[in-house]
Every structure is written in C-alpha cells, then in structure tokens.
Amino acid sequence: MFPDEFDYYEATSVDEAIDLLAEHSGAETELLAGGHSLLPAMKSGLSSPDVLIDVGGIDDLHGVSVDGDTLVVGAMTSYSDLLDADAAHKHAPAFAAAVGQVGDEQVRNRGTIGGNLAHADPASDLPGAALASDATIVAEGPNGEREIPIDDYFFGMYATALDPGELVTRVEIPSAAGAAGAYAKKPSPSSGYAMVGIAALVETDGGTVTSARVGANGVLDHGVRLEAVEEALVGGSLDQESIEAAAAVATDGIDEAMMMSDLQASAEFRATLLEAYTKRALRATAENAAPRAAD
C-alpha cells in the first residue's frame, strides 16, 4: 500500500511552515507531524493531499517545560517524550494518564500531542483529557499567534477552531500539581482507540471536592465535558457513594440523538459505557488523590 504521489517540503521553523502553508493554499495541503493518523489515511486512499509540509522536525516545537504555574508542551512532542517528563505527571496527571494509554509503544514513539489534538479524532484519547485539564491550544498563522481555550476548540469530527493557514505550536496546561487525575478507557477490541474514554481532574480540600473537570471521548463526534458529573462532585467527598451518584448523571445534558453510533458500539451501549467508565475514572482519581495528598 503506497500513498498517492505528493510533493514534500520540510519546514525547519514555524515561520517557514506558515509561509509554505500560504504558498500552497491553492492545493490540497496537509501538515505532517508524527504521521500516525495521516499516513494510514493516505495509504488506504482516504486522504490524498497534493502537498505535505513536514513540521515534525521543527526544534522549537519539541519538549516539555514549566513556566510559572503552566506546563508547556511543544506541539511536536511525542507521546513517549511527554511520558518521560516528570513534570507532565506532576502538573498534568489526567493528561499524562491519557497519553500513556494511546496506541502501543511504537505509536507513542512517533505520534505527537499537537498532531493528535489538531486531528481531533472523536475516538482519540487526548480531547477528553485536554478538556479535563483546561488546556489552551496555542496556534500561529499569518496573523500571528493566538490562544484558543480548550472549551472553544473542538467543533466536531476532525473539526477544530484552527484556521487552514495555522499550525498548533504548543499546548499550555495550568498546573494541577495539587489535584488528582486519572483516565479510564474502554479500548476498541480491534483498533485499540477509545470506544469511550473518561479523564477526570479533581481538587480536594480536607476531603471535600473543591473543583472537578471531567472530559469524555467517544461519546459525541468531538470531546465533551460532563458538566453534570462535575457539578455532582463539587462539595461532596470522593467516596464510593458520591462517585456512584456522580456517575449516575454522566449522560445528563448529552443529547441522545447526537451520541455516536457505529459498528463499534451503539449509542445505547456508549451510554452504558459512559457511566461505567466515569465511575472507573473517578475511583482511580480517588486512589491517586491519597498518595498525592501525602507528597
């Protein structure tokens, strides 16, 4: 299986990538990051761009750092490189947990954080975690840089707030060093992608939940926050009873007619999974809360 023919350009800087995007705006152009969504789609004929602009080698877009209270993740940082960074686990526990469950070792060595969030596959693991982590997507285009809050970022299947001439340069995650987080995923038995995946990030004070963000993949055609669950959690404790009660409202506020339904799982089954995996994510969060509190 070969991809169709295309022209290939390697960008060595963000400016060069933006110029190349502008120069080839008349053709069907794709940015190439880790290639682990794009190349399979090109090989199977689902996608046949005329031009590929490789941004994977741009040095400035690699690496994980801490800037004040913010974890800064370069868009072209691979999953493996993020998992190797202690700061990611410390400051973004829910996000790091989700990254650890993407694909397999070889996929994690190639795929990138920015490529994943730009692609916005509804069965991907990162949208829910980015929502739970209150991430900001930083994009750059011909008109300069702009910050897109994650709550305004996902539009639909493979659709985001990004403009065609823009690229994601980094993802900023406010430090959740004092919170506990987890990700619980029901992988598709064939592809390993998320049939349903729930990311939770919960802050407690003296055993009482002071804030909670919960994001879900695989439910709608884009990542979504489970606001009813978040509201149910705040003010309670993270014990078995309140976890059950919060998970019981997992589908509240989610339009049933918009629930994904495909060969993998019917909408009805996804609703059942949503509740079950919300419970699992919250239980894991509670377990993680104990050791973090002792730090």
Binding site: L32, G35, H36, D54, G56, Q106, N109, R110
Partner: peptide
Amino acid sequence: GACTVHLDGEAVKSCTALAVQ
C-alpha cells in the same frame, strides 16, 4: 509490528514512516 525497526533508538513501525522523514 512486523516492520518494527529502531529510528534514532526508538522502536517504530517502518510501514508508517516516510523514508524522507
């Protein structure tokens, strides 16, 4: 994974990388 090789020390599926990369 039958096509797995090491690229700069990391295991990758060589059917899912371009030679130019």
